[in-house]
Design a protein around this nucleic acid. Structure first.
Lengths: 117, 117
DNA sequence: ACCTGATGTATCGGTTTGCGATATATTAGT
DNA sequence: ACTAATATATCGCAAACCGATACATCAGGT
Protein backbone atom coordinates (compact mmCIF):
# COMPACT_ATOMS: atom_id res chain seq x y z
CA UNK A 1 0.00 0.00 0.00
CA UNK A 2 1.17 3.48 -0.85
CA UNK A 3 1.70 5.78 2.08
CA UNK A 4 -1.24 7.97 2.83
CA UNK A 5 -1.02 11.36 1.22
CA UNK A 6 0.86 13.87 3.33
CA UNK A 7 1.95 11.39 5.93
CA UNK A 8 5.55 12.32 5.28
CA UNK A 9 5.26 15.98 6.15
CA UNK A 10 6.36 15.65 9.75
CA UNK A 11 9.61 14.24 8.40
CA UNK A 12 10.16 16.86 5.73
CA UNK A 13 13.10 18.34 7.57
CA UNK A 14 14.69 14.90 7.85
CA UNK A 15 14.38 14.38 4.11
CA UNK A 16 15.73 17.80 3.22
CA UNK A 17 18.68 17.51 5.59
CA UNK A 18 19.44 14.07 4.16
CA UNK A 19 19.40 15.28 0.58
CA UNK A 20 21.68 18.17 1.49
CA UNK A 21 24.02 15.77 3.25
CA UNK A 22 24.78 14.39 -0.20
CA UNK A 23 25.97 17.76 -1.43
CA UNK A 24 24.80 21.33 -2.00
CA UNK A 25 21.45 21.75 -3.73
CA UNK A 26 19.18 24.58 -4.71
CA UNK A 27 15.52 24.46 -3.78
CA UNK A 28 13.95 23.41 -7.01
CA UNK A 29 16.54 20.66 -7.44
CA UNK A 30 15.57 19.29 -4.03
CA UNK A 31 11.92 19.26 -5.03
CA UNK A 32 12.68 17.37 -8.20
CA UNK A 33 15.07 14.90 -6.65
CA UNK A 34 12.73 14.02 -3.84
CA UNK A 35 9.82 13.60 -6.22
CA UNK A 36 11.87 11.34 -8.48
CA UNK A 37 13.31 9.20 -5.69
CA UNK A 38 9.90 8.75 -4.12
CA UNK A 39 8.01 7.93 -7.30
CA UNK A 40 6.22 11.20 -6.86
CA UNK A 41 4.90 10.27 -3.42
CA UNK A 42 6.67 13.14 -1.75
CA UNK A 43 5.93 16.52 -3.24
CA UNK A 44 7.89 19.24 -1.56
CA UNK A 45 5.75 22.14 -2.69
CA UNK A 46 7.13 25.68 -2.48
CA UNK A 47 4.88 26.43 0.48
CA UNK A 48 6.55 23.60 2.37
CA UNK A 49 10.09 23.69 1.12
CA UNK A 50 11.08 27.35 1.23
CA UNK A 51 9.87 28.17 4.72
CA UNK A 52 11.72 25.05 5.87
CA UNK A 53 14.92 26.04 4.09
CA UNK A 54 14.72 29.58 5.46
CA UNK A 55 14.21 28.28 8.95
CA UNK A 56 17.22 26.01 8.62
CA UNK A 57 19.23 28.96 7.41
CA UNK A 58 18.18 31.03 10.40
CA UNK A 59 19.14 28.16 12.67
CA UNK A 60 22.52 27.90 11.04
CA UNK A 61 21.93 24.38 9.81
CA UNK A 62 22.64 25.40 6.24
CA UNK A 63 24.63 28.12 4.54
CA UNK A 64 23.03 29.69 1.50
CA UNK A 65 24.63 31.40 -1.45
CA UNK A 66 23.10 32.99 -4.53
CA UNK A 67 24.25 32.02 -7.94
CA UNK A 68 23.33 33.61 -11.23
CA UNK A 69 22.91 31.31 -14.17
CA UNK A 70 23.91 33.05 -17.38
CA UNK A 71 21.82 32.10 -20.34
CA UNK A 72 23.09 31.75 -23.92
CA UNK A 73 19.94 32.95 -25.55
CA UNK A 74 18.47 35.11 -22.83
CA UNK A 75 18.50 38.84 -23.32
CA UNK A 76 17.76 40.09 -19.84
CA UNK A 77 20.54 41.56 -17.76
CA UNK A 78 20.10 39.35 -14.72
CA UNK A 79 20.19 35.65 -15.40
CA UNK A 80 18.10 33.13 -13.50
CA UNK A 81 18.75 33.24 -9.78
CA UNK A 82 19.47 30.14 -7.81
CA UNK A 83 20.08 29.87 -4.12
CA UNK A 84 22.37 27.03 -3.17
CA UNK A 85 22.09 25.45 0.25
CA UNK A 86 25.02 23.71 1.86
CA UNK A 87 24.78 21.71 5.04
CA UNK A 88 26.84 23.22 7.85
CA UNK A 89 28.65 21.30 10.55
CA UNK A 90 25.77 22.14 12.84
CA UNK A 91 23.34 20.85 10.23
CA UNK A 92 25.26 17.62 9.97
CA UNK A 93 25.07 17.23 13.72
CA UNK A 94 21.37 18.01 13.67
CA UNK A 95 20.77 15.44 10.94
CA UNK A 96 22.50 12.72 12.92
CA UNK A 97 20.44 13.67 15.93
CA UNK A 98 17.16 13.77 14.03
CA UNK A 99 17.85 10.43 12.38
CA UNK A 100 18.56 8.83 15.73
CA UNK A 101 15.41 10.32 17.22
CA UNK A 102 13.39 9.23 14.23
CA UNK A 103 14.60 5.65 14.44
CA UNK A 104 14.04 5.47 18.19
CA UNK A 105 10.54 6.78 17.63
CA UNK A 106 9.95 4.19 14.95
CA UNK A 107 10.96 1.36 17.21
CA UNK A 108 8.76 2.68 19.94
CA UNK A 109 5.69 2.89 17.73
CA UNK A 110 6.50 -0.44 16.12
CA UNK A 111 6.56 -2.05 19.55
CA UNK A 112 2.85 -1.37 19.86
CA UNK A 113 1.88 -2.61 16.43
CA UNK A 114 0.55 -6.07 15.64
CA UNK A 115 3.26 -8.31 14.23
CA UNK A 116 3.87 -8.08 10.51
CA UNK A 117 2.40 -10.93 8.49
CA UNK B 1 18.64 8.69 22.16
CA UNK B 2 15.13 9.02 23.43
CA UNK B 3 12.51 10.03 20.87
CA UNK B 4 11.79 13.72 20.84
CA UNK B 5 8.89 14.64 23.04
CA UNK B 6 5.57 14.52 21.20
CA UNK B 7 6.97 12.95 18.09
CA UNK B 8 4.55 10.08 18.53
CA UNK B 9 1.39 12.15 18.36
CA UNK B 10 0.84 11.71 14.67
CA UNK B 11 0.69 7.98 15.34
CA UNK B 12 -1.60 8.17 18.34
CA UNK B 13 -4.45 6.55 16.44
CA UNK B 14 -2.17 3.71 15.41
CA UNK B 15 -1.18 3.08 18.99
CA UNK B 16 -4.74 3.22 20.30
CA UNK B 17 -6.08 0.93 17.60
CA UNK B 18 -3.26 -1.50 18.30
CA UNK B 19 -3.94 -1.59 22.00
CA UNK B 20 -7.62 -2.16 21.35
CA UNK B 21 -6.78 -4.97 18.94
CA UNK B 22 -5.58 -6.86 21.98
CA UNK B 23 -8.98 -6.66 23.62
CA UNK B 24 -11.51 -4.16 24.93
CA UNK B 25 -10.17 -1.36 27.09
CA UNK B 26 -11.52 1.70 28.82
CA UNK B 27 -9.82 5.03 28.32
CA UNK B 28 -7.86 5.33 31.50
CA UNK B 29 -6.58 1.78 31.10
CA UNK B 30 -5.27 2.67 27.65
CA UNK B 31 -3.46 5.68 29.08
CA UNK B 32 -1.82 3.58 31.77
CA UNK B 33 -0.91 0.68 29.52
CA UNK B 34 0.67 2.89 26.89
CA UNK B 35 2.63 4.83 29.51
CA UNK B 36 3.88 1.61 31.07
CA UNK B 37 4.84 -0.07 27.81
CA UNK B 38 6.67 3.03 26.59
CA UNK B 39 8.58 3.74 29.79
CA UNK B 40 6.46 6.82 30.14
CA UNK B 41 7.54 8.23 26.77
CA UNK B 42 4.03 8.23 25.44
CA UNK B 43 1.56 10.09 27.58
CA UNK B 44 -1.94 9.86 26.19
CA UNK B 45 -3.39 12.79 28.06
CA UNK B 46 -7.15 13.19 28.30
CA UNK B 47 -7.08 16.02 25.80
CA UNK B 48 -5.52 13.70 23.27
CA UNK B 49 -7.14 10.39 24.07
CA UNK B 50 -10.81 11.16 24.45
CA UNK B 51 -11.31 13.22 21.32
CA UNK B 52 -9.56 10.43 19.44
CA UNK B 53 -11.71 7.73 20.98
CA UNK B 54 -14.89 9.71 20.29
CA UNK B 55 -13.87 10.22 16.70
CA UNK B 56 -13.22 6.52 16.29
CA UNK B 57 -16.61 5.82 17.73
CA UNK B 58 -18.25 8.20 15.27
CA UNK B 59 -16.41 6.51 12.45
CA UNK B 60 -17.58 3.11 13.61
CA UNK B 61 -14.06 1.87 14.27
CA UNK B 62 -14.93 1.04 17.85
CA UNK B 63 -18.07 0.17 19.73
CA UNK B 64 -18.43 1.72 23.15
CA UNK B 65 -20.36 0.49 26.15
CA UNK B 66 -20.77 1.95 29.61
CA UNK B 67 -20.11 -0.13 32.64
CA UNK B 68 -20.76 0.73 36.25
CA UNK B 69 -18.24 -0.48 38.75
CA UNK B 70 -19.96 -1.22 42.06
CA UNK B 71 -17.83 -0.37 45.04
CA UNK B 72 -17.73 -2.37 48.26
CA UNK B 73 -17.20 0.59 50.50
CA UNK B 74 -18.67 3.38 48.42
CA UNK B 75 -21.91 4.87 49.59
CA UNK B 76 -23.05 6.76 46.51
CA UNK B 77 -25.84 5.33 44.43
CA UNK B 78 -24.00 5.42 41.11
CA UNK B 79 -20.70 3.61 41.06
CA UNK B 80 -17.71 4.70 39.01
CA UNK B 81 -18.51 4.89 35.34
CA UNK B 82 -16.27 3.29 32.76
CA UNK B 83 -16.67 3.34 29.05
CA UNK B 84 -15.30 0.27 27.32
CA UNK B 85 -14.11 0.45 23.77
CA UNK B 86 -14.10 -2.60 21.56
CA UNK B 87 -12.55 -2.69 18.11
CA UNK B 88 -15.13 -3.31 15.39
CA UNK B 89 -14.56 -5.27 12.20
CA UNK B 90 -14.20 -1.95 10.45
CA UNK B 91 -11.69 -0.85 13.07
CA UNK B 92 -9.69 -4.01 12.55
CA UNK B 93 -9.61 -3.33 8.84
CA UNK B 94 -8.57 0.24 9.45
CA UNK B 95 -5.78 -0.85 11.74
CA UNK B 96 -4.38 -3.22 9.14
CA UNK B 97 -4.56 -0.46 6.61
CA UNK B 98 -2.94 2.12 8.86
CA UNK B 99 -0.16 -0.26 9.82
CA UNK B 100 0.58 -1.00 6.18
CA UNK B 101 0.56 2.69 5.33
CA UNK B 102 2.78 3.46 8.29
CA UNK B 103 5.34 0.84 7.33
CA UNK B 104 5.36 1.93 3.69
CA UNK B 105 5.88 5.47 4.85
CA UNK B 106 8.72 4.37 7.09
CA UNK B 107 10.51 2.61 4.28
CA UNK B 108 10.10 5.61 2.04
CA UNK B 109 11.54 8.02 4.58
CA UNK B 110 14.26 5.58 5.48
CA UNK B 111 15.29 5.41 1.83
CA UNK B 112 16.36 9.02 2.03
CA UNK B 113 18.27 8.74 5.27
CA UNK B 114 22.01 8.24 5.55
CA UNK B 115 22.89 4.64 6.27
CA UNK B 116 22.82 3.57 9.90
CA UNK B 117 26.24 3.26 11.49
C1' DA C 1 -14.83 12.00 59.56
C1' DC C 2 -11.94 14.19 56.74
C1' DC C 3 -8.41 14.78 53.44
C1' DT C 4 -5.53 13.55 49.62
C1' DG C 5 -4.21 11.24 45.65
C1' DA C 6 -5.60 8.07 42.31
C1' DT C 7 -9.17 6.70 39.18
C1' DG C 8 -12.18 7.93 35.41
C1' DT C 9 -14.48 10.66 31.60
C1' DA C 10 -15.04 14.83 29.17
C1' DT C 11 -14.76 19.53 26.78
C1' DC C 12 -13.02 23.94 25.38
C1' DG C 13 -10.61 27.44 23.00
C1' DG C 14 -6.22 30.03 22.39
C1' DT C 15 -2.10 28.97 20.04
C1' DT C 16 0.45 26.98 16.71
C1' DT C 17 1.14 24.96 12.34
C1' DG C 18 0.50 23.55 7.71
C1' DC C 19 0.40 24.47 3.19
C1' DG C 20 -2.64 25.82 -0.96
C1' DA C 21 -2.88 29.69 -3.45
C1' DT C 22 -0.64 33.19 -5.33
C1' DA C 23 2.99 36.36 -7.09
C1' DT C 24 7.05 37.33 -9.76
C1' DA C 25 10.82 36.62 -12.99
C1' DT C 26 13.66 33.93 -16.35
C1' DT C 27 14.36 30.58 -19.93
C1' DA C 28 13.52 26.85 -23.50
C1' DG C 29 10.91 25.12 -27.02
C1' DT C 30 7.72 25.37 -30.89
C1' DA D 1 4.48 35.10 -29.60
C1' DC D 2 3.07 31.94 -26.66
C1' DT D 3 3.35 28.11 -23.35
C1' DA D 4 5.46 25.18 -20.13
C1' DA D 5 9.16 24.60 -17.23
C1' DT D 6 12.42 26.58 -14.11
C1' DA D 7 13.15 29.10 -9.82
C1' DT D 8 12.28 31.58 -5.43
C1' DA D 9 9.22 33.52 -2.15
C1' DT D 10 5.30 34.96 1.04
C1' DC D 11 0.77 35.14 3.10
C1' DG D 12 -3.17 34.13 5.66
C1' DC D 13 -6.91 31.17 6.78
C1' DA D 14 -8.28 26.69 8.19
C1' DA D 15 -7.22 22.89 10.78
C1' DA D 16 -5.01 20.61 14.39
C1' DC D 17 -3.34 20.40 18.84
C1' DC D 18 -3.47 19.65 23.66
C1' DG D 19 -2.85 22.16 28.24
C1' DA D 20 -5.99 23.55 31.35
C1' DT D 21 -9.93 22.76 33.48
C1' DA D 22 -14.13 20.56 35.29
C1' DC D 23 -16.53 17.04 37.54
C1' DA D 24 -17.46 12.67 40.04
C1' DT D 25 -16.03 8.38 42.55
C1' DC D 26 -13.09 5.68 45.40
C1' DA D 27 -9.18 3.87 48.56
C1' DG D 28 -6.24 4.64 52.17
C1' DG D 29 -4.30 7.07 55.82
C1' DT D 30 -4.70 9.66 60.13
Amino acid sequence: MAPAKDMWRSSADLVVLSVLADGPRYGYAITKQVAAQSSDSIRLTPGVLYPLLHQMERQGLVNAEWDTVKSETGDSKRGRQRKWYKLSAKGRRRLKQRVAAHRAYQQLIESFLPAAD
